[in-house]
Simulated assay, not measured.
Amino acid sequence: MDHLRHHAIRESSHRILDPFTDDQLATLGRALRLDPGATVLDLACGKGELLCTWARDHGTVGTGVDLNPAFVDAARERAASLGVDVVVELGDAAGYVSPTPVDVACCIGATWIGDGAVGTLDLLARSLAPRGVALVGEPFWRSDPPEAARAIGDFHTFPGLVAAVQDAGWDVIEMVLADEASWDRYVAAQWLNLRRFLDEHPDDPLAPAFRDELTTAPLDYVTNQRPYLGWGVLALVRRP
């Protein structure tokens, strides 16, 4: 399967490719008390909404890296439309290190690039200036899920996630969490994208997989994901 195209279609209507609303993303930017001119690196940046809106609202300077050409094109268009100082590179974020240290280094919802939150923090640290802030967005279990839900992924509980990053030598200095409503806006919007694609492209090679997904995903989401799975962004600074 063409996974990059698959994701581009499923999230075609999204600007934020995570279960955050515009308000939650803005809250995170305000919580960090960003200074004008602060440099932000976003690995696996998707469509660059974090970089672009923070540059607009706080005067930050952004660099993004993403492997999906459709997302990179969308991020560049967004930056141009807002007239902000954001550069987005097409490339594999795994292993990417900024040529100059940055004030904020992010990986929001894509910590597989570092084999999990702790490994991704190790990667982000290689790009951070002294006392710089790392941001990781990560799912976690809000409560003990049934066995069927565990097929979604091998996640920490929220206390377990916080303990893991603290044990790795980081101080948690802020956090903003998704809620059920923001999860709905992220996940349910994908179903409309899939249905419209199927209506318009019934013979596309991806159509059978999308048909299966649209048949099973809504019930699976409300049964096994919505009641149990949380998501949020932790802001962290490495201890001396």
Rank of each mutant, 00 (worst) to 15 (best):
N193K: 07
T53C: 07
A134Q: 11
T216A: 13
A38K: 11
I16P: 02
G169D: 12
Y221C: 04
I173A: 14
E200Q: 12
C52G: 15
D204T: 03
H6M: 03
D85L: 15
Q190V: 08
A105T: 05
A94S: 11
R30E: 10
R196L: 13
Q225P: 04
V118Q: 14
L28F: 05
S81V: 08
L123D: 07
T53W: 06
D85S: 15
P19F: 01
A80Y: 00
I173V: 15
G91I: 00
A181M: 06
T216C: 12
T53E: 12
L124S: 02
V136M: 05
V237G: 06
T215P: 09
Q166I: 15
G46F: 03
A151D: 12
L90W: 04
R142P: 09
T27A: 15
L123K: 02
A134G: 09
L135G: 05
D85C: 14
W191H: 06
T215D: 11
P69R: 04
R142H: 09
V84M: 13
V172L: 11
V176Q: 01
W231P: 03
D115Y: 11
L198H: 06
I16N: 05
Q190S: 15
P101V: 14
D204F: 02
V165H: 12
E213K: 15
A163L: 10
M175K: 13
R150I: 07
L135I: 08
P36A: 14
T100A: 15
Y96G: 01
H156W: 00
V97K: 07
A134Y: 14
D115F: 08
G48R: 03
G59K: 02
G59V: 01
P36W: 02
L128R: 08
N193S: 11
V176E: 04
A178M: 02
L192G: 11
Y221M: 03
A235S: 10
Y228D: 01
Q24T: 03
W231R: 07
A125I: 05
A75V: 05
K47H: 09
A164L: 01
G132W: 14
T223Y: 08
L177H: 06
F197M: 07
A55D: 04
G114L: 10
A168V: 14
P99C: 13
L219T: 06
A181V: 08
G137D: 08
V187K: 14
A31I: 00
G137T: 05
F155D: 05
A38E: 13
L90Q: 12
R56A: 09
R10Y: 04
A188C: 15
P36G: 09
R131P: 11
D22M: 05
L206R: 00
A217V: 05
